[in-house]
Nucleic acid binder design. Sequence first.
DNA 1: CAGAACGTTCGGAAAGTTCTGAACGTATAT
DNA 2: ATATACGTTCAGAACTTTCCGAACGTTCTG
Lengths: 190, 190
Amino acid sequence: MTEQPVINTQSDPRLLAVHDSMLDGLGQLADYFGFSKVTGQVFGALLLSPRPLCLDDMVELLDISKANASMTMRALGNLGMVREVWVRGASGRRKYYEAESNFWRIITNVLKSREMRDVERALHVMDDNAKKLNHAMDELSEEERHLATLYLERISHMQGLFQFAQLMIEAILEQVHDSPDEMPAIPNWD
Amino acid sequence: MTEQPVINTQSDPRLLAVHDSMLDGLGQLADYFGFSKVTGQVFGALLLSPRPLCLDDMVELLDISKANASMTMRALGNLGMVREVWVRGASGRRKYYEAESNFWRIITNVLKSREMRDVERALHVMDDNAKKLNHAMDELSEEERHLATLYLERISHMQGLFQFAQLMIEAILEQVHDSPDEMPAIPNWD
DNA sequence: CAGAACGTTCGGAAAGTTCTGAACGTATAT
DNA sequence: ATATACGTTCAGAACTTTCCGAACGTTCTG
């Protein structure tokens, strides 16, 4: 079967330049957010493609191995950043993907699955340690009791920070949740 | 000169456990945020220390090389997460550090110097590319014009996302700025 | 049923990051 | 002045992450 053109070395160099610039930017961004660079590039390729892409498309487009493409797609899938789509006429079991176009859903997924969990874990650790300190307090020497008190102070200080972070994340999630299809409103904190 | 005790193998094992657990948690957190693990550990050590620490203290406390300690301190200094303090009686040019205890200032620094800049750079790239596309539009073939139009659509869609991120960061900064010494209020987005 | 078409997994290669020990420079103390 | 104490820099060691090619298993096609 014949395939629609995506973009290739025959395309207008200006289009190509924009295409590559976007993929590069998304690559750096992904890197910055703790994903691999190709993760961002693949997402970009899907985003700028007029049709769904299969693994071999990405191999050709980004000059990566099929193994890499496969692993990356799974990662993106788990993040809810791409979806598998069915393409009519596409033979057999070839999988085609497109970028999840609802960015707000992506934000929700990522914030929920990553940032939220980490903040919660941190809070749990601090809570745990504070409990342990309070428990041990009576049995400590004078000097150690001073140290323990200092720890409690600093830990509780830090807990404030993380509770704040938690509130921020929750607020953003709520905000995004309320306007799932368009640009959320400007926040007003008062 | 004699030094105040910080914490060591002679200390109560429960104190030691809490100390190490906190450092471990901060290490992971730092890692997650794109800093090295020791960056977080060093900050933790300062945070839980009853007195300012010098490089050699950290070498002993964290079992790292002095070179590593030196580099890490500079990094933390640039982030505004530690400050150099003068210690009376401390010989000559030995440098002592303590953790910046105003976490809200730290947030401000990090958000401003990192997240903000990246979001702005991303927006700039997209803006740039959109301009290029509009410029080239007339001279493209029919088919390429379709592609360019698709690009413009998707890019503008993505710009919405980043503008949102920018607004969030600004809102958080403002929020923190208004309450520099305590827990900021719970946000209300309506 | 044989062969091609695909996606996935795995061991190890390549690239990138973090850490160290040694050399160095400069300030302090004797 | 000389020696010591201290922080910094640098080349490469150690470790981590990312990536690839090859082998494999499964589904389709003829």
